[in-house]
Write a protein that binds this DNA or RNA. Sequence first.
DNA 1: CTGCATCCGTTACGATACTG
DNA 2: CAGTATCGTAACGGATGCAG
Lengths: 140, 140
Amino acid sequence: MKKSIDWAEANAACEALTEQQDSLTRDIVTRLAEKWTLWALAELAEADAPLRFSRLMERVEGVSQKSLTKVLRQLERDGLVTRAVFAEVPPRVEYAITDLALEMLELVHPLWQWTTVNIAKFEAAHATYDHEVPARVKRA
Amino acid sequence: MKKSIDWAEANAACEALTEQQDSLTRDIVTRLAEKWTLWALAELAEADAPLRFSRLMERVEGVSQKSLTKVLRQLERDGLVTRAVFAEVPPRVEYAITDLALEMLELVHPLWQWTTVNIAKFEAAHATYDHEVPARVKRA
DNA sequence: CTGCATCCGTTACGATACTG
DNA sequence: CAGTATCGTAACGGATGCAG
């Protein structure tokens, strides 16, 4: 069960990237954990069809217009969603998830799954933490 | 190659969690992508031995003391690293990665790997994005 | 050596009001 | 309907100085 990562290989892969590519990799992964990104992607994936801005906003419960707009713009820039504007009145804009994003979600899913399965361990860790004295271990 | 996620099942798993557990799951995943968290964990995993604060700080290039301290405290609370204080002079504090964190890294690794392998696609997406008019599609 | 306290600029996010 | 503009709050993260 302990297949342990090959760090030599992993480092080699990292160093094969340009400075810029390495930075971009970091950015992509970081963005995944911004407050609404994963949620929005998951809703688009689950819908399995293009969604209008307002439909998507209903599903991503609690997001503000501003934040959703920003997140979607970023995802579009990253090639993870497509944005289709229809010149109608009233205006219609549809967002859809790309194959690239679907592939990515396939990899994020096991991580999420594992976290939910092991959530008890994290709860336990938090419960026992209080004992520790954060700063000094010192006696009086 | 398109094994697509079973959303019904995924949702069921989510709803089996308490409000608090769901929130904690989100927190854990979110923290993984905070600026230094993954990097610090990876260094501890690669070292495969406890590291002193200053050794770790050398390896996590560019991190400030403040940020590293904060990250390590959080990881300790989450049960992902252990912190051993030795009552010596000068003081020695050693950080080590836990099995829980190693298990987690196993799942994060493929995501990172995939991102580096597909980095060209993201670069391409960014390169072609400029054409789009972010706001109005309007004619003149 | 470890790491807390403080200052400070930047970014994230929400609420509200307004436009095509 | 789908944003943009503006405002205010909060959190992030670096730099520096100090303490045990």
